[in-house]
Write a protein that binds this DNA or RNA. Structure first.
Lengths: 235, 235
DNA sequence: GTCTATAACCGGATAGAC
DNA sequence: GTCTATCCGGTTATAGAC
């Protein structure tokens, strides 16, 4: 989807793209379960067997979805991030945009994310296969922080993007479960939790908080170092 | 499983129990996917159709698992909790016991918890069907706190058990993904995060933290009020 | 009405011919 | 690279036994 567009045969590539495109549309329209591989194949004008030639499993069709969501977030926030310098405002607009971008998929999100919970699945956010997207997301959050005028304590700075990535994951997890109209609660939670995060960051330098700060940094490192390898930590 | 043991016919009940027992054992031995309903039925000495008479779906077999895990935790900690009064020690032993109790199921946990991520699934920790177990867990954590000699700020007290429940959920989620030998990282994380939590609680009364404290309480309420109904909040 | 069994359906995945 | 035929397992329909 965001691969170097050259080098691969064109007929095959168009077939592949068509299958993926059709599949994502059907997922959104009818849901993940209701969209059978047979229907996808038919809609894309290929046989069932051919679909499996391009995508080894139904799950693999969902990887394209994730990458799309990340690209969508970057595009949706580029303009606003270019001018805004206040950290709280930056984080808030990013998290709100995150929710906006995934919004059309809320109905399906349950069954879509279902697979993501399984660590053995390539769709797990911690998996090898998700590595590229994960690293891109963390790098993006790093920019969100560094582009602000906030002063972040030296020891917190390297871990902060990872912490924010975990936080974003949690927010989306909440959103998946959020049945309030328009997922209003998720937006409220985003606002409230961003407030708390920024305030905590502002207080982080206080001597009383030195020990907790270290403790928290320690366990965030533990969490983020988790996964297929230690490569995550220096993304 | 923890129902009033009377009132239902005994032959049927024994059949039901046998199916469940056999299923859990097979899940642990061979994994969730590899254990087919046909195998379960055969091992329990009934026909496939009969299994479906007792358990409407394969997922429903997993509900018994959850309840078992909760009962296991309570039993594993009863003795130690009876004498220990220090909050940090109490929380630490509870969280370590939580990991001990689920340990035999680590290999399977991925596919087992997979379904739990789907909000539409009865296996979701936030679902109606999980309500009883969820409320029991929160009530248990309330006792863990109240049985300690720690002084908890008045405004924090009612929300704390819910916060701890979310925290426990997160810990287990991490454990599911933890591939370190013996899941050592999960135990480390439990220790470190309990330290941080207890320290934060001790500092919570400080005037500088008043605003953050309120903000955090607010969004924890938002999260926990989420789900099938508002009944969660007064469990 | 409670329980059990057999046969079939449906959809994800695979084999192998062309 | 594309197809058809088939497998396999969760689930359902339904008939009948106790």
């Amino acid at each position: 989807m965001s691969l170097p567009a050259a080098s691969l045969s064109s007929k095959a590539e168009r077939t592949r793209d068509r299958i993926l495109e059709v599949a994502l549309e059907l997922f959104r329209e009818k849901g993940y379960e209701a969209t059978t591989m047979r229907i996808i194949a038919a809609a894309a004008g290929v046989s069932l067997g051919s679909s499996y030639y391009y995508f080894p499993s139904k799950e693999h069709l969902v990887q394209g979805f994730y990458e799309g969501m990340h690209v969508g977030l970057v595009e949706a926030t580029r303009e606003a991030l270019a001018t805004e310098r206040d950290l709280k405002a930056r984080l808030r607009l990013v998290m709100r945009a995150r929710l906006d971008v995934v919004a059309p998929y809320h109905v399906v999100s349950g069954s879509l994310f279902r697979t993501a919970a399984d660590p053995h699945s390539p769709l797990s956010p911690f998996s090898e296969a998700s590595g590229p997207t994960r690293r891109e997301s963390i790098a993006f959050l790093k920019e969100v922080v560094e582009g602000s005028d906030a002063r972040i304590p030296k020891d917190v700075a390297p871990t902060l993007p990872h912490l924010l990535w975990l936080y974003e994951l949690g927010l989306v997890l909440f959103w998946v479960h959020d049945r309030s109209p328009g997922q209003k609660r998720s937006y409220d939670l985003a606002d409230d939790s961003v407030d708390a995060i920024v305030r905590l960051l502002a207080l982080a330098h206080l001597p009383v908080l030195r020990t907790v700060r270290r403790q928290i940094l320690k366990w965030v490192s533990t969490i983020v170092a988790e996964g297929p390898g230690a490569e995550d930590i220096d993304a």
